[in-house]
Design a binder for these strands. Structure first.
Length: 816
RNA sequence: GCCCGGGUGGCGGAAUUGGUAGACGCAAGGGACUUAAAAUCCCUCGAGAGCAAUCUCGUGCCGGUUCGACUCCGGCCCUGGGCACCA
């Protein structure tokens, strides 16, 4: 063994050993002890980001640790390979997206291997691989069959100079990223997935995810946004038509002083209101405002009176109908009853246009009268409902409206259907074809996959697939008539919504998921960045339910346990190229080795918290490993030189103390890693143990079984986090099997229970002294002993003790 | 505006069920070794008083519950993130 710790050499040796011995290939035959550990796969941008290192180190340490407690571990890795950057690179550097992606995958795979992650590379997948996206297309056709996808016109960002559709991230300040042209909105037909049909289930089953972090569950619940209310019908004056509105505040109905419809509401065209010049110009203005990237909430409220009135369903009063830019077309019925006295937005609008404001709710408590009171309260000015409480009034008014057939209970969700069409080349083709008359046909299953053409020209205008000279023109496989392919590709979230499943049978050409691998689902531990808390995780949960309904999987949720790791910050900011504060993991590996960066990134902060990068603190982790190396080297030398080996039976107090430290560390590290997932404190505990071992070793020229046991235990427990150095030390300690095959150490409770325990003595809750007493000592003995303490007796003299609080094996508190 | 986090030494963080605040590490200061530097090792390290034993204060701010509060409750401030006219 080298005297000096040379990470490069040690790491290369370990990595070669693992590769040669196929150390991380999973045996799928046993499912009883399975541990499917998945880290979110990366987009192959070319370089690993420090955030990836954090993500994958956490996944790797959990995988390796679980293997040591006897689990059959599956930890795969792959590539989220379709996406916009590849196309941008193609435009800017004239390199084909496929080539660019392949090169990036190769270099990132090299980086991952340099970090020593225990991946089962035999399961590697790339979403740009036709063997992968064939099944994506296949599944889309299943959904088409089940009528869970549909086509509808929808708006996209249109660049009038480049004549192309832009993704939201390509629109900067309302302008195209390349042309700088002001972006327009354009309506084109696109494919949608009916995620809204699963709103209720997606919401309800969140409660069946006990091992997910609460904040993420809350974010998902809010995103789905269930709201319970009522739909009410307002008759239109001198007409048989009516307007439906949705409200959650039926108790405020007597305060409704006008109706407001969204600018794209059907009511406007049904009544030819758009023919009037003033209304028409208002509508035009509304649609142009949307072009800006500004959030709607910052746009000033505007509206116009339609000249038409509605009849209030209870009072039968006439109330005016307005068109208002603040009413969302997509939510509820696209029209609202406005109650300015009890809604801030309606109030703002009513003030501006001088509309009536009727107070109908009073606060329950005597708080200061507000101009707009939006909470529940007691009804007033509401005919015979006056005096009722808001909650009760909502029920009674709904009953009343139901009887008259003027209203009904309604539940709404804010979750919208998922638009999956993208007008891009580097994505998975949507497998449908169109006849000249516009009718839609699925590509027959036996013709899958629909592959992308290789010869593609990015210099043309618009979607390159659409401009391709031949690709889209085909003969209809059913009729032989001329037909065209769909030239849109899937949103890349589509690929990443089911990849966890394909890892289990990456090469099965007959099934999307090999039947006997079903039992390997769900993923036992999923790890990824908080930035995917909503979309990716929601889509994956949705897909899993779709797969279940297609009998592909047997359960309803894809990820049993979720760990969402925080961001890595540099100087308080998210790392980004534009801020010029990125850290290249390769530099750290070059200077200190992979083990050091792994230890540091785990030690610096708890996994769920943001981590502040520090160049100087990383040396601390390096020193820790170096000290472990030096200690191991010294012990191995002593062993080789046949230094007298004492045994534990000799019972020197120092050995007993050290043995106790070893076992308490095992206990702490075990619970930190497996139960609490507080990996940073696990490392702190191992650092403490190392300090003790070094101290023990330096005190004498002897060494004994306890010391060797301590080093071996430490090496085993550290091996999931720093796998290379521990691999090398383990072999040098003369073991025939590698440390990855070792069993996780067990604490000996007998060693940990002491004959004596330390008790703290408090006066009025303040620490004044401490004494050592027998384990489980009774109160009276402890009290007597405590009174004898010098620092205690001086407090207790000349005062009366009101009360004594005694906590066994912990403390005694005198209240005086 | 609404919904989640977070606020503890010079810094990253620890304190697991209401019971020793500051574990572990970084930085800093002092010392040993060295011709010297690096590396390594040892000591000090929240503030204040004291020769010391020890005492007082101290976990964003104000108040409360409790024998005892970083931890629980009420109100506020700052900060990170998510959503944002969802009726």
């Amino acid at each position: 063994m080298d005297k000096e710790y040379i990470p490069k050499k040690v790491e290369k040796e370990a990595q070669e050993y693992w590769e040669k011995n196929n150390s991380f290939i999973t045996n799928f035959s046993s499912t009883k002890n399975k541990y499917y550990c998945l880290s979110m796969f990366p987009y192959p941008s070319g370089k690993l980001h420090i955030g990836h290192v954090r993500n994958y180190t956490i996944g790797d340490l959990l995988s390796r640790a679980n293997k040591m407690i006897g689990k059959e571990v599956f930890q795969p890795m792959g590539w989220d390979a379709f996406g916009l950057p590849a196309e941008n690179a193609a435009i800017q550097n004239k390199v084909h997206p496929a080539e660019w992606t392949t090169n990036n995958i190769a270099s990132m795979k090299g980086q991952l291997n340099n970090l020593g992650f225990a991946y089962d590379w035999s399961a590697e997948i790339s979403t740009a691989d036709p063997d992968y996206f064939k099944w994506e297309q296949w599944f889309f056709l299943k959904l088409l069959e089940k009528k869970l996808v549909y086509r509808k016109k929808s708006e996209v960002n249109w660049d009038p100079i480049d004549k192309t559709v832009l993704a939201n991230e390509q629109v900067i300040d309302g302008k195209g990223w390349r042309s700088g042209a002001k972006i327009q909105r354009k309506e084109i037909p696109q494919w949608f997935l009916k995620i809204s049909k699963y709103s209720n289930e997606l919401l309800k089953s969140i409660d069946e995810l006990p091992k997910w972090p609460e904040p993420i569950k809350t974010m998902q619940k809010n995103w789905i946004g269930k709201s319970e209310g009522a739909t009410i019908f307002f008759k239109i004056e001198d007409s048989n038509d009516k307007i439906e509105v949705y409200t959650t505040r039926l108790d405020t109905i007597f305060g409704a002083t006008f109706l407001a419809v969204s600018p794209s509401h059907k009511f406007i065209t049904d009544h030819d209101l758009d023919k009037a010049d003033n209304i028409n110009s208002f509508l035009k203005k509304c649609s142009s405002v949307k072009v800006s990237e500004e959030s709607l909430s910052t746009v000033e409220k505007e509206g116009i009176y339609t000249g038409v009135n509605a009849i209030h369903p209870i009072t039968k009063n006439k109330i005016p109908i307005w068109i208002a830019n603040y009413v969302l077309a997509e939510y509820g019925t696209g029209s609202i009853m406005s109650v300015p006295a009890h809604d801030l937005r309606d109030y703002e609008f009513a003030k501006k246009y001088d509309l009536n404001i009727n107070k109908v709710i009073q606060p329950k408590d005597s708080r200061v009268e507000q101009e707009v009171f939006t909470d529940d309260g007691i009804l007033c000015n509401s005919e015979n409902f006056s005096g009722k409480d808001s909650g009760e009034a909502r029920k009674l008014i709904l009953e009343n409206l139901k009887e008259q057939k003027l209203g009904e209970k309604t539940i709404n969700f804010r979750l919208r259907d998922w638009g999956i069409s993208r007008q891009r080349y580097w994505g998975c083709p949507i497998p449908v074809i169109y006849h000249k008359d516009g009718s839609v046909f699925p590509v027959p299953e036996e013709q899958l996959p629909v592959k992308l053409p290789d010869d593609i020209d990015f210099s043309c205008e618009g979607n390159p697939l659409e401009q391709h000279p031949t690709w889209k023109n085909i003969k209809c496989p059913y009729t032989g008539k001329d037909a065209v392919r769909e030239t849109d590709t899937f949103d890349t979230f589509f690929e990443s919504s089911w990849y966890y499943l394909r890892f289990l049978s990456p090469t099965d050409s007959n099934n999307i998921l090999t039947t006997d691998r079903k039992k390997w689902l769900p993923v036992d531990q999923y790890i990824g960045g908080i930035e995917h808390a909503i979309l990716h995780l929601l889509y994956a949960r949705f897909f899993h339910k779709l797969m279940r309904d297609c009998n592909i999987v047997d359960n309803s949720e894809p990820f049993y346990s979720l760990l969402s790791q925080g961001m890595v910050l540099n100087k308080g900011m998210k790392m980004s190229k534009s801020k010029n504060n990125t850290i290249d993991p390769d530099d750290i590996i070059k200077n200190f080795g992979a083990d050091t960066i792994r230890v540091f990134i785990i030690f610096a902060a708890p996994p769920e918290q943001n981590l502040e990068w520090s160049d100087s603190a990383i040396e601390g982790s390096y020193k820790f490993l170096k000290r472990l190396w030096v200690l191991s080297h010294s012990i191995i030398e002593k062993k080789d030189n046949n230094v007298t080996k004492k045994t534990l039976e000799e019972n020197e107090p120092e050995s007993i103390l050290l043995n106790k430290k070893i076992h308490s560390t095992i206990k702490k590290v075990t619970s930190d890693i497996f139960d609490r997932q507080n990996f940073n404190t696990a490392i702190a505990a191992m650092m403490e143990l190392l300090n003790e071992l070094v101290k023990f070793n330096s005190k004498s020229t002897n060494f004994n079984n306890v010391l060797v046991y301590g080093v071996e235990t430490l090496v085993k427990m550290l091996s999931p986090i720093a796998p290379h150095i521990t691999h090398k030390i383990w072999i040098e300690l003369n073991h025939s099997k590698p440390v990855i095959s070792e069993k996780w150490p067990q604490p000996d409770e007998d060693v940990l229970t002491d004959a004596k325990v330390e008790i703290i003595i408090q006066i009025n809750g303040k620490l004044r002294s401490r004494i050592s007493v027998n384990n489980d000592e009774i109160e009276s003995v402890v009290t007597d002993k405590a009174r004898e303490c010098q620092n205690i007796s001086k407090y207790l003299d000349k005062v009366t003790i009101k009360k004594v609080i005694f906590v066994k094996n912990k403390l005694i508190n005198f209240v005086i």
